[in-house]
């Protein structure tokens, strides 16, 4: 199997923060931590698909926290990931109303070293909903916005990637897509309420 470069915790955090070959860092996270985390989820009533989804969500949260400079090196990365996965699964069980496993999971957590992830959990649901709104945009809009705001491509580079005539057409399209997305966000009651509270 292709092995991602090996990292110490400090090196891995630097690679993510500075986006030095982020793909390799993600692959390393999977190679090192996916199996133990998945076993844990399966042990607490999850299917393989659940474990798969929970770990993916865990990796996204972890990268998000590191990129935003909110990761404090109080625990090892492994401890942090397991804590996040545990909480994601705990919330999922709550949604599915499977209290038996939830209690066991809670008991398990009391014996384990825990990372402080309160800040991460608080906006987990909001971030999920935001992603969902982007998917509702439709493929052309999603593509153009991702190329510009995630891949950081210039208008000129986007013209090379997508079937648009020139930069001005791309600029107009991007404007409309962003407007559609903010429209969807405004229409989402949970998120709109949070914005109102911020700008009160």
């Amino acid at each position: 199997m292709k092995v991602a470069g090996k990292y110490s915790d400090v090196e891995l955090l630097a690679a993510i923060r500075e986006e030095q070959d982020l793909n390799k860092a993600i692959l390393y996270l999977y190679q090192q931590y996916a199996v133990p985390t998945s076993s844990f989820i399966i042990q607490y009533g999850g299917s393989e698909q659940d474990a798969d989804d929970v770990f993916q969500e865990t990796v996204i949260s972890f990268i998000d926290v590191v990129k935003k400079g909110r990761y404090r090196m109080e625990a090892s990365i492994k401890t942090f990931l397991v804590s996040v996965a545990r909480n994601i699964w705990f919330n999922e069980l709550k949604k599915r109303e499977r209290s038996g496993y939830r209690e066991k999971l809670f008991e398990h957590g009391r014996d384990q070293q825990e990372a402080d992830i309160s800040f991460q959990i608080s906006d987990l649901e909001k971030r999920r909903q935001l992603r969902e709104l982007v998917h509702q945009l439709g493929e052309p809009c999603k593509k153009i916005l991702m190329l510009y705001y995630y891949e950081n491509l210039s208008m000129k580079e986007i013209v090379d990637h997508l079937p648009y005539e020139n930069e001005q057409v791309v600029r107009n399209k991007k404007y409309k897509c962003l407007q559609s997305l903010t429209g969807l966000i405004k229409g989402n009651p949970v998120i709109a309420r949070q914005i109102s509270e911020i700008t009160k």
Binding site: I26, I60, L130, R131, L133, V134, H135, M146, L181
Partner: peptide, 17 residues
């Protein structure tokens, strides 16, 4: 608008992962 950019970056990261 800031939230929209956050959403796009989240969705981009999700696809990459």
């Amino acid at each position: 608008l800031l939230l929209a950019v956050d959403a796009i970056q989240e969705a981009g990261l999700e696809e990459q992962v």
